[in-house]
Amino acid sequence: MSTTIETPDPVADPPGTARPVKGHRVVRSSRMAGAKRFSGLRIVAFAALALMAVGWLLPFLWAVATAFKTETDAALGGLDWIGESGATAEAFVSILSQGNIWVWAFNSLWTSVAITAITVFISAFAAYAFSRLDFRGRRWMFVVILASIVIPPQVLIIPLFYQMLAFNLVDTHWGLILPQVVMPAMVFILKKFFDAVPIELEDAARVDGATRFRIFWSVVLPLSRPILGAVSIFVFINAWNNFLWPFIVINDTLLMTLPVGLQTVISAYGVQYAQIMAQAVLASLPLIIVFLLFQRQIVKGVATTGFGGQ
């Protein structure tokens, strides 16, 4: 799991922070020294940690266990990890063969990628303008954008739906995507990063006769890979799991995203617990795998972006 890409990360690693030695073990050297010592306190801490971790894993593991049971065993209840008739992948097979889960997964993937790409692209350009370019109204426009961070998107569902009706975008993927690409907090986070990029780097390129666009594209953006990654991860997770807006704007079963689609199946299956758990587990797999692969980047990305205001 140690997929460490050792690029300098000025955001998550401000000067003065000891860089983690290798892989996922993010430990300060000073504490390592103490850590090696055997002590009763450490045993207590380890026990507490293990207990909490098990408690936090159990609900999901229980869902996995249920998914591998026959419907009859699942409906019997009890606390057995394996049902009386043994483990079976029946539930998974029927979900994958009959349901719309593939269609929904594809819809989720493409709309989330589109939302992420558009959001990062338009926010980065705007943030650079606010950070480095001089124009009339720069100050107050930025204040307006900053203030708009407090607007909960949920209070906009009525006028947004009305607008999508007018644009004829209800029940389309563009109707789902477009209202989600405006994330003022991301402009703020990116601007703060661009502000900290040494201006000398750009001056050098300007002396060479590069245009603003060229400077931004080939000097500033490559330097900003860590923050762009962080913002992308954050936007993607939110888009992938968003429920309310897709639930409102999409009615066609074949256009639904995973979270909205799965929700329609509950009633259709009635009491088929094993199948419901199987599809819940299947739907969770993509992000869990991504997390296992990019744990370090995601942990950093969420922390960096999270502090920037959600």
């Binding site: 799991m1 996922h24 073990r25 993010v26 430990v27 940690l49 909490m52 971790a53 098990v54 936090w56 894993l57 609900p59 999901f60 229980w62 869902a63 249920t66 997770i237 992938w240 799991n241 429920f243 995973l258 979270p259 909205v260 799965l262 929700q263 509950i266 617990y273 419901i276 758990m277 819940a280 739907a283 969770s284 992000l287 869990i288 997390f291 296992l292 744990q295 942990v299 969420v302």
Partner: peptide, 25 residues
């Protein structure tokens, strides 16, 4: 370390639909 992080952070990656179905069960 990676196991602790996975345990505590993993649920945050799940969609509301998924966690609702798990907890209803």
């Amino acid at each position: 370390q990676w196991l602790w992080r996975l345990s505590f952070f993993m649920p945050y990656l799940l969609a509301s639909t998924v966690i609702s179905q798990i907890w209803v069960w």
